[in-house]
Amino acid sequence: MMATADDQFYREYIIDHYKHPRNYGRLEHPDISHEEDNPLCGDVVGMDFRVTDGVIEDVRFHGRGCAISQASASLLTERLKGMPLDEAKKINKDDVLGELGIDISPARIKCALLSLKVLKVGAYGLADIDEE
């Protein structure tokens, strides 16, 4: 079981998003900007948002780390562009994992969900979120 899950782990589009991240960089004067890290593996993801009339008009991410954390952030930004902020707030763990489309081991789940944490903490202006 392990082997088949792993065989599909580094699918081409994940490597592609890792090597050619979409919406990578910074926004000038963002309405929301937030960064989180995962000290255990040193992954960092930050996001800048421009929000107009409650809609995410533009989003950029920056950071470094493993393919899973960076591809997940890149995929998330694609989805967020043009989305009402209220809708973005509703994106959950299963949405993000579903988008990644791979079977993530417990050891790597934090990598996959780092960008979601950035979105949630940034969008809600919260100090932190419950990781579960």
């Binding site: 392990m2 082997a3 792993d6 065989d7 782990f9 580094y10 000290p39 255990l40 593996c41 040193g42 780390g65 493993c66 393919a67 899973i68 081991s105 790597r108 990598c111």
Partner: peptide
């Protein structure tokens, strides 16, 4: 990234540490 390497090594049953 070391964690990606460790995950790929794990598929070959190679136990490798990645981290700080």
């Amino acid at each position: 990234h070391p964690h990606d390497l460790a995950t790929i090594a794990d598929r070959d049953q190679v136990c490798l540490r990645a981290g700080h």
